[in-house]
């Protein structure tokens, strides 16, 4: 595959299986462009989290190749890939304060003290937690904990960040505001973002492009607009579009009845 100038990640023929499920991912190939926001959308068990773990290097693929900026990274350990990941449950270090969470890895990498402090302050500022830096994670709301996890990841300057259903534990209002913040962070740092979700609405609201996975295969990879206007197959139509349409319809009925007026 030719590497174009703006290709960040090139994934070629990734396959993965387990004992009970021999084909979790079937020969997956796609390209992630530099600076784009790409969502991996699919129901539980379609292989999207497995794919994410393979990309970051936490799980070896059975076959296939991953390149970043034209360099083969398939065999590199997770911390040598210049990528970061934010988990669904945040996985914060509970015995450390917000600031310590962000600084921990920087310190172990033996960065100069002043730089460690500068970076953590910059990051906490960026996620709006500068005034919470002495608190422990348990004293924060879910949305704030999520922001700590993001700051901790971004502090190492990765150029690709993976998100594994990061908002599934948040309430609706927080989710909506986090969406905006995530887009702002991306604009600020120019990070390429890969975002795993099973929420159609979230994928459509956030993404430059959406990759729809069905039982380990790519159903369609395109912009939200193109997916909406030209669904590749019946699966995309029913899982994505019909579900979205149903949501829109029920909201419309609600508004027509005057439910939103009071």
């Amino acid at each position: 595959m030719d590497v174009q100038l703006n290709d960040k990640l090139v994934i070629e023929s990734i396959s993965k299986g387990y004992k009970g499920n021999p084909a979790v991912l079937k020969d997956i190939s796609f390209t992630v462009r530099d600076g784009e926001f790409l969502s991996l959308l699919g129901p539980s068990g379609c292989g999207k989290t497995t794919l994410l773990r393979i990309l970051i290097g936490l799980l070896p693929a059975d076959s296939g190749k991953i390149s970043k900026d034209g360099r083969d990274i398939t065999a590199l350990p997770p911390d040598k890939r210049g990528m970061g990941i934010v988990f669904q449950n945040y996985a914060l270090f509970e015995n450390m304060t917000v600031r310590q969470n962000v600084e921990y890895a920087l310190k172990l990498h033996k960065l100069p003290k002043a730089e460690v402090r500068e970076r953590s302050e910059h990051m906490l500022e960026a996620v709006g937690l500068a005034d919470q830096s002495r608190k422990y994670p348990r004293a924060l709301s879910g949305g704030q904990q999520q922001r700590v996890a993001i700051a901790r990841t971004l502090a190492l300057n990765p150029d690709v960040v993976l998100f594994d259903e990061p908002m599934s534990a948040l309430d609706v209002a927080t989710r909506l505001s986090m969406r905006t913040e995530l887009k702002q962070l991306q604009a600020k740092f120019g990070t390429t973002m890969l975002y795993v979700t099973h929420d159609q609405e979230e994928a459509f609201a956030l993404s430059d492009r959406i990759m729809i996975l069905d039982r380990g295969e790519i159903s369609q990879l395109d912009t939200p607009e193109r997916i909406a206007s030209e669904p590749a197959n019946e699966y995309v139509r029913s899982f994505v579009l019909d579900n979205l349409q149903a949501k829109v319809d029920s909201l419309a009925r609600f508004i027509r009845r005057g439910g939103g007026a009071s």
Partner: peptide, 18 residues
């Protein structure tokens, strides 16, 4: 204990022992 702690460590370049 959160099952992803070691994985987060690995991606941050912090070894399992740490």
């Amino acid at each position: 204990v959160n099952p992803d702690l070691e994985d987060v460590g690995l991606t941050l370049g912090v070894g399992r022992l740490h």
